[in-house]
């Protein structure tokens, strides 16, 4: 029974654009963060609703001279508990955020240009491709993201969080695919009538013959 439930839950997580079916270290860390936060939230919500339910059903004294206990409700439940939980969470979050930053050497830096309505990728060898991004697997790749017209947002949900493409500035995003395959990507920032179909795909190639295959594909 439990197995069936787990299997169906996991199946529900799959999808070409699923953030909770990660295929790279950055997205994986965020997915782990999500499951932790979901668990914590379920616990906290259960606590709050249980207190509320008991509070409703028990017959309080409703004595105007004896209001509720301030130190328990406000001091412990209102202050101490959230402060503890939130500070732990904030520390964890900053640590994850720091690890997802594009620091340290990258295998390649690719110039990305978003426009209405397409994506252009230019590689270090000088070649360019439209609406298909080709990367090696197992190594970090930096994307230098620009826009030529309006604001877009580059998002490959299974690999990493999103990064906006904003006219007049260059934003860097680090991605890494753990296995070869095709990953779908969308534009996340509303960019006009073509927004819904402003998509591209990422093709990741195994490291040993990446250069040959990518070279051929590029």
């Amino acid at each position: 029974m439990v197995m069936v439930f787990l299997a169906s839950t996991l199946a529900a997580c799959e999808g070409a654009l699923s953030t909770i079916d990660p295929a790279g270290p950055s997205a994986a860390r965020v997915a782990d963060l999500w499951w932790c936060m979901l668990g914590g939230s379920i616990l906290l919500a259960t606590l709050v609703f249980a207190l509320l339910l008991v509070g409703l059903l028990r017959r309080g004294v409703a004595d105007r001279e004896k209001p509720g206990n301030k130190s328990v409700w406000i001091g412990w439940l209102g202050l101490a508990m959230p402060v503890t939980v939130l500070m732990v969470l904030l520390g964890f979050a900053l640590w994850v955020g720091e690890r997802n930053l594009p620091t340290g050497p990258a295998a390649e830096t690719i110039e990305v240009t978003a426009y209405n309505y397409g994506w252009e990728f230019c590689y270090e060898d000088g070649s360019c491709s439209e609406d298909v991004l080709r990367i090696p697997t197992g190594r970090p790749v930096d994307l230098d993201i620009r826009a030529t017209d309006v604001i877009h947002s580059l998002w490959i949900p299974r690999l990493a969080g999103k990064m906006d493409a904003i006219p007049g500035q260059v934003n860097r995003l680090r991605i890494q695919a753990d296995a070869s395959g095709t990953y779908e990507a969308v534009c996340a920032e509303y960019c006009g009538v073509g927004h819904a179909s402003h998509r591209f795909v990422v093709e990741a190639y195994e490291a040993e013959n990446a250069n040959n295959l990518m070279g051929a594909a590029r």
């Binding site: 509720g68 409700w73 406000i74 439940l77 202050l79």
Partner: peptide
């Protein structure tokens, strides 16, 4: 945190009273 303070103050009030 201030939001939590309010939510628990309200629940505490319900707890103390007879709704």
């Amino acid at each position: 945190i201030p939001t939590a303070v309010q939510v628990f103050a309200w629940i505490g009030t319900i707890w103390a009273g007879r709704p």
